[in-house]
Computed example of a mutant assay.
Amino acid sequence: MPLQWQLLRGDEMILEVWTRPTTSVRQTVTRVSVRGDGEVFVQGRAGLACCEAGIARRLGFDRELPDGSAERFRVLRDHWVWKSPRDVRVAEAGAAEAVCVEGTAYDLTLLTADGARTVRRACDPAEVGEAAEVLEAVLGAGLGHDPRFDVVFRGKADFSMPRQAYRELIESGGRLRPDPRSRFRPPGQELIPEPETAEAPSPTPN
């Protein structure tokens, strides 16, 4: 069921991650649903798609996660990535703007009874690293249910290298700033570029 059709109450929440490689049309969507009673379910879909939100489904699964899984995901609703701009770019002194040639884009959505928040982290390891905790939790929950799904991630959801890249960026004085090319701006400000000095929140990574 599309996220916009979901009706959540109380502590219920959904975390969803779309994985879109730049060099392939093999995409995946992984959704973790935390119910009010503490039960947690993971759904995975994978297949071939291009340029559209819908996946031409090739496989799918729907599994219940072990008891006690809910807390791991509930703490992620307060993760700092949800307070960051939807689209960002790496900004560090003396470095030219990166061009994405090969990598993977991740669209992450948090849905709660209070509303929805979506961010996109693409290609640059430091960008992806800001969302590493969310990606590891959601994608990790989707592994081990179908080998055809697992092969897309080579059997693991390890974001230790992007996590380190993000840590090094922050420690060196760099930042993730709002991307002025983003199509997603507040109503009435679509044509107003983000100031160069505007910065995304950059808490000290764990």
Score class of each variant (00 low, 15 high):
E64P: 09
A98Y: 04
G115V: 08
E190I: 05
L191D: 15
T109A: 03
G188L: 11
A98M: 00
R63M: 14
F184E: 10
A93K: 10
G188R: 08
R57G: 13
E194A: 11
S160W: 07
R177H: 11
R175D: 06
Y166A: 10
A56V: 12
R58L: 13
V152S: 07
P186R: 14
A131F: 06
V128Q: 05
R148G: 15
E102H: 03
A56M: 07
G60K: 03
G140Q: 07
S160I: 09
E102W: 01
Y166M: 07
R63I: 05
G103K: 02
D107N: 01
D78L: 08
F149Q: 04
E190C: 04
L108V: 09
D124Q: 14
D107F: 04
A122G: 03
R183W: 12
F184I: 11
E190H: 11
A53T: 13
L108K: 01
R183A: 15
C123M: 06
V99K: 03
E102F: 03
G188E: 11
A93G: 00
R89C: 00
R77Q: 14
R167D: 05
A96Q: 04
L111A: 11
R120V: 12
P180T: 08
I192R: 14
R58E: 15
D67Q: 14
P85C: 04
R148Y: 14
L108G: 01
T109R: 08
K156V: 13
A91W: 00
E171D: 14
A70L: 06
G115Q: 09
S69R: 09
E130V: 06
V152L: 15
S69I: 06
G54C: 07
P125R: 05
E97M: 00
H79A: 12
P85G: 01
R175M: 07
E92K: 07
S182V: 06
C100G: 02
L176M: 11
P178N: 08
A53P: 04
I170V: 15
S84I: 02
E130L: 15
T118M: 12
R185S: 08
H145M: 12
A141D: 07
R77M: 06
F61D: 12
T112R: 07
D158S: 12
P193Q: 08
R89T: 04
A53S: 12
C100K: 00
E97R: 07
E97S: 01
P186K: 11
P66V: 09
E92Y: 00
S69N: 08
F149D: 02
E194G: 00
I192M: 10
A116Y: 01
E92V: 12
E130W: 04
R167K: 15
D179H: 01
D124R: 06
L169W: 05
E130H: 10
P195M: 09
S69K: 07
R154L: 15
F184A: 10
E130D: 05
P186M: 10
L139Y: 03
E64A: 15
P195D: 10
L135T: 02
L59E: 13
L111P: 00
P85R: 02
L65I: 14
G94M: 02
R167P: 01
P187A: 13
Q164A: 15
E171N: 10
A122F: 09
T104P: 02
S172F: 05
L191G: 09
D67V: 13
K83Y: 00
Y166I: 03
P125N: 11
D62K: 04
G155P: 11
L65E: 10
A126I: 02
L135P: 03
D146G: 12
R154F: 14
E102I: 04
